[in-house]
Design a protein around this nucleic acid. Structure first.
Lengths: 209, 209
DNA sequence: ACCTAGTTCAAACATCTGTTTAAAATAGCT
DNA sequence: AGCTATTTTAAACAGATGTTTGAACTAGGT
């Protein structure tokens, strides 16, 4: 295994667990069993390492996600919101084939990135993978055309918040569920629980201002 | 104004903006115009200062929130979910009387605390203010008795995520709204936008597993 | 005026941070 | 083998962090 990949593998676990700001290069390199200077040699800086960690997942996810959403957009039928959100499930779960616990790790990273580092990841995703967003908003508009652009903007950000927050603390929540309810919840059932929630939220009736 | 309050006032603004980990004691003390050592003299440590900042708001909020929720719980009528969530509005907005921009600052702090510092604030809130949570779950149960305890657990955490994430990035979202839609959104209208969303999410039909 | 308890202050402390350096080791190629 | 480019290494760097120190200062009470 190359040093570069050793670093990426160690970094993503630590980033997911403790956030980007909360993880030092020394933790990463010692966990990866490589020299401290290797990060700056191979990636240039910590910020570039973060981008590389995210890109590895996004490059796997984005094409599959765009395809699944564009099928909905170009279909003749009117989708309902649950279908739109369920389009995420298969591409997300495919990350488990790509890497062990890939789905869970990626979603946790996403959560970390949105709250850590003052919106840097939001910029990264929207500029590097804009098609995912445009396809998604088109699909939602098709399912709920009465929703104004503004209202959709807000509700999609609420949705982002729900997903991202849930996933960034998914380990803690799963622990509570296991202890309090004797109920072991996998990342897949968690996804299946959150989708009806966000679909109902986005589909909520519009309130007059 | 006492040194202690100068520190609290400066700290809450910086914490809300840049997170707990992202704010140094030197930033706080220089913004407050006091000596660096004052924090450790008056509060003992940075962690205790964080608790103090949160407590100042929670002690104001908790009794009002408990009252509003217990009214619903002890009423003879069956509430609907929107009413349960709207019970939060008045107590939250009252924080604006308590401090300028109090509502917004508090909600941002809440958001920061949930993602920073590995769940320390979750522990703090649930142990220091358990009544708020029990009243809340009782009210939700009254409005939606078919929801099992387990399902409610998940949906309430989804809700927490929506609120907390939205509010921690509320400044950025409000900026986008102002620039892209020429639409200036106050914290109050933001609250009124998010409540139908979370109410619909919690009220979503139950899916067979 | 004096003493005492509480408070402020500049300075230092020890530790951690990301990054850079220059020498050493390794690999690939002819 | 010998040369070259790439990679690894230990060490140092410069700056930031939370905390502690001990002296200076400031009330308040007698």
């Amino acid at each position: 295994m190359s040093t570069k990949n050793k670093i990426l593998d160690a970094a993503e676990l630590l980033f997911a667990d403790k956030g980007f700001n909360g993880t030092s290069l020394r933790e990463i390199t010692s966990s990866a069993g490589v020299n401290l200077a290797a990060v700056n040699y191979h990636f240039g800086s910590k910020k570039e390492l973060i981008k590389a960690v995210m890109s590895r997942y996004m490059n796997e996810l984005a094409p599959k996600l765009e395809l699944a959403l564009s099928v909905i957009v170009h279909s003749d039928d009117k989708p309902n919101l649950d279908e739109v959100f369920f389009a995420f499930v298969e591409p997300l779960l495919y990350l488990n084939e790509f890497k062990v616990n890939g789905t869970s790790i990626f979603l946790q990273l996403l959560g970390r990135g949105y709250t850590d580092s003052q919106g840097f990841l939001r910029w990264f995703l929207t500029t590097q993978y804009p098609n995912v967003f445009t396809h998604f908003t088109k699909a939602v508009h098709k399912a709920y055309p009465e929703l104004t652009t503004q209202e959709m903007f807000w509700r999609l950000h609420f949705t982002m918040g729900t997903i991202v927050f849930t996933m960034s603390s998914s380990d803690a929540l799963m622990d509570i569920s296991r202890n309090d309810f004797n109920n072991d919840v996998s990342i897949e059932t968690l996804i299946n629980k959150v989708i009806p929630y966000v679909a109902a939220g986005v589909g909520a009736p519009i309130i007059a201002e």
